[in-house]
Design a protein around this nucleic acid. Structure first.
Length: 476
RNA sequence: GGCGUCGUGGCGGAGUGGCUACGCAGCGGAUUGCAAAUCCGUGUACUCCGGUUCAAAUCCGGACGACGCCUCCA
């Protein structure tokens, strides 16, 4: 039985699909106004693994991940740079898609864009006004929080306490400081869409309620997102959704955040002003430097409700570990395969192997414990080493295919680990071939002083030589 | 202050009331001319204080501490 921790109930509970055999899942996506950073990757990678596992368990998964392409930050960027906002959002959404592809995130079925749903949003807001759950104020339309029973149930807040903490800083005709914008009336120079209340644009929270409604319906199985979105974003989504349709997501899953040396790195962190510091968090840089498969493994290496540390020590350890897994698999790592869980479970294997296999499944079944599951892959690889030759291939393929169910150990992953020598540097290739030949001659003559000198000097120059039975290889 | 997650060996990180997690690093060995890589072996860990129990890192209570949210953020 699949279980899942539900933020709403604060318990691990059975995952019971709204519609038998199907799962509808929504993940809050990025606002596309700047380069993606490492944190943007956590949600997609984790919930891709979740979706993959649910599919392996025989469920049909519709996985919606929106793109926020209307927002203050986008407008600001456009004003700053003079670039049309459409060009900005097109560029960064493409970057996001490219990153997902490199990370083997391929279960997302829908990428709705905010701008495609403005009409549905105004209709939805009209409905909220008709139900007396929203009202028109001087600068837009607002949600009336006081009318929402149970507001704050997700994040454990009480409206009164929140209001007490809010500074009364503006007098825009709000009924309560806790009320939030559904529709913002246009200010000069801003992009806008028509509405019954005048030209403007949607507020932040309404898009998700509307897009979940139109893709997944009033009630759906899983709403996912980063922890920092619990309040106010998800709380407000619930308010809107319940006001509109009487119900909303059944299960809320929140992933903890990517940290750097024990702390979250916010946009407002002073160090972010330093381009070099910022650069090391940019997703493109990270993937180029360490390889997408390493990052995927890192993000899945622990439990998703605990923070994952993204730092030099952690990431190097993961990369080494991944390299050894792939080495252990050998040619098996590159074979294409389309694993089917039931078939893997039916494989006749030794007791020890079956135990690890069962532990893998149990880990995933229990709140998607990817870290525990990955540990079992290591166990299986160790079993493969011990196993008789005849059984080894079966065990290796089992380990690999369980990994592949989570998007790990995919064909081509090994290539991302070797720092690619500047491609097609023919000159260097020829020089190195000569050097290795001369060194081999020296070794044949037992002139190890020369042999070692060559290796040491090349090492100092950044080239590593490894001697193997069938000759030496080099890399850098 | 309010809400939430959590406190495990050098580091990272799973965990079932009694049985080796796992990874990285280290150490010993095999192999190698020497290295590297690989393989084998190797760790009496569980914040503190009470309680429940035949038995608790695992359940309950308390303390202390960490991190996150409450403001842009994935």
């Amino acid at each position: 039985m699949q279980t899942v921790y539900n933020t709403l109930t604060r318990h691990v509970e059975p995952l019971v699909p709204v519609t038998p055999g199907k799962i509808g899942m929504y993940l809050c996506g990025p606002t596309v106004y700047d380069d993606c950073h490492i944190g943007h990757l956590m949600g997609p990678v984790l919930f891709d693994a979740v979706a993959k596992w649910l599919k392996a368990r025989g469920l049909a998964v519709r996985f919606v991940n929106n793109i926020t392409d209307i927002d203050d930050k986008i407008i600001n960027k456009s004003v700053e740079t003079g670039e049309p906002w459409q060009a900005i959002t097109a560029r960064y959404s493409q970057q996001y898609f490219d990153l997902l592809k490199r990370l083997h995130v391929d279960t997302i079925t829908d990428h709705p864009r905010c701008t495609e749903y403005v009409g549905q949003m105004t209709a939805y807001i009209q409905d909220l006004i008709a139900k007396d759950r929203a009202y028109v104020a001087a600068d837009g339309v607002y949600y009336d929080v006081a009318k929402q029973g149970g507001y704050g149930k997700l994040s454990g807040r009480k409206v009164e306490e929140m209001i007490a903490g809010v500074r009364v800083e503006r007098d825009s005709g709000l009924r309560s400081p806790a009320d939030f914008a559904l529709w913002k009336l246009v200010k000069p120079g801003e992009p806008s869409w028509p509405s019954p209340w005048g030209d403007g644009r949607p507020g932040w929270h309404i898009e998700c309620s509307v897009m979940t409604h139109h893709t997944l319906g009033h009630s759906f199985d899983i709403h996912a997102g980063g922890e920092e979105l619990k309040f106010p974003h998800h709380e407000n989504e619930i308010a809107q959704g319940e006001a509109h349709g009487g119900c909303y997501a059944k299960v809320w899953m929140h992933n903890n955040l990517v940290q750097f040396e024990g702390h979250k790195v916010s946009k407002s962190d002073p160090r972010m002003k330093d381009p070099a510091f910022r650069g090391q968090f940019k997703a493109l840089n990270v993937l180029d430097q360490f390889g997408a498969p390493t990052i995927r493994l890192l993000l899945l290496s622990g439990h998703y409700r605990r923070p994952v540390d993204f730092g030099p020590t952690a990431i190097t350890a993961i990369r080494t570990s991944l390299g050894r897994m792939l080495t252990a698999l050998g040619p098996v790592a590159e074979e294409p395969s389309a694993p089917i869980l039931d078939a893997l479970l039916a494989l006749p294997v030794s007791e020890a192997v079956a135990k690890a296999r069962a532990a893998f499944v149990a880990s995933m079944d229990e709140d998607f414990n990817t870290g525990g599951a990955i540990a079992q892959i290591h166990v299986l690889l160790a079993e493969a080493r011990k196993a008789p030759e005849a059984e080894r291939g079966t065990i290796l393929r089992l380990a690999r295919d369980l990994g592949r169910l989570l998007g790990l150990l995919m064909p081509g992953d090994a290539a991302t680990l070797t720092t690619e020598a500047p491609a097609s540097d023919d000159t260097l290739d020829q020089v190195m071939a000569l050097v290795l030949e001369l060194r081999q001659t020296a070794r044949a003559n037992r002139d190890f002083a020369t042999s070692d000198l060559i290796r040491d000097r090349l090492k100092a120059a950044g080239i590593t030589i490894k001697d193997a039975k069938d000759g030496a290889t080099w890399s850098r």
